[in-house]
Computed example of a mutant assay.
Amino acid sequence: MPELPEVETTRRGIAPHCEGQTIAQVKVRNGSLRWPVPGDLAAQMNGQVIRTVERRAKYLFLNLDHGTAIVHLGMSGSLRIITDGAPAEKHDHIDLVLHSGVTLRFNDPRRFGCWLWADSAETHPLIASLGPEPLSAEFTGRMLFQLSRSRNTPVKSFIMDSHVVVGVGNIYANEALFHAGIHPKRKAGRISLDRYQRLAEAIREILSAAILMGGTTLRDFVNSDGKPGYFAQSLLVYGRAGEPCPNCETPLKEIRMNGRSTVYCTGCQR
């Protein structure tokens, strides 16, 4: 599943081709996504100018003069810039044809992504209750500490809760907890302020590095120019169960938490 760095990589890839461009045509070939594509999407968007392309959590906003298209890549979705007029293929569900001749194409084999329409994106029910961005000044170790008091949920689940902080998906939660030396099953309410400050810094550093490297290479993810990210080469624990810990050489252990792979070091993470 594309996580925050992959979505931010997509935003940066498509924005120069889309911002300031007028939408000539919206083609919806298959509107049966996670939620049905609004029947009036084309009528709402045709003829409008894409002013900005923004990201909030794992959602992308195509901000027009009147309203916003809210896009989520789901588990397997991608947005590609088409400049050569290549014909649509089986899983190419939506095209935005721009007056410049460029097409923004949405591909989603599993159809768990979405295209929605909102007069104001920030007040949409999917967006309004989201926590802070992990790279914002609002996100701090003290904030995590205060929100975690009396919480018995495991810390890994806590930092993956989008009402606490957005965009910390499974891969990056594994990596951040390893960097901070925190056991993924430790109760969120029993972690000190100092350790939360280390964890917040680890989350910021790992996500920033992943964005700079174009995201993590996943089976279903390609960015806007078709090139995968390369952060997978920097992963220290995720996907490395049974291999020696890079710090102490203890074999890394894998467990399942909420159906997700969780890899950690029994020696370094307490």
Rank of each mutant, 00 (worst) to 15 (best):
S76R: 13
E205Y: 00
L199H: 02
N258M: 09
R270E: 12
G239Q: 09
V237E: 05
M45C: 11
N63A: 08
S136C: 12
A118N: 03
L60A: 04
P38K: 08
E19N: 08
V97F: 04
P134L: 06
R11D: 09
R110N: 13
F158Q: 11
F106G: 01
E122Q: 13
D40N: 15
M75I: 06
T123C: 07
P134M: 04
D220Y: 11
A210W: 00
Q44F: 03
A176M: 10
P154W: 05
H66D: 14
E249Q: 15
R80A: 15
Q21C: 09
E138R: 14
A121M: 10
F106Y: 13
R142H: 14
R270K: 14
P251Y: 05
Q25I: 00
I203L: 07
A43E: 15
Q197I: 00
T68D: 10
D95A: 05
G113K: 11
A188H: 07
H66T: 15
P36S: 05
T250N: 13
G39R: 14
H124M: 07
S32P: 02
G39C: 05
S120E: 14
T140V: 08
H91W: 06
Y196A: 08
G189N: 07
W35C: 02
A209G: 07
R34I: 01
G131W: 10
G169T: 12
G85P: 06
L135N: 08
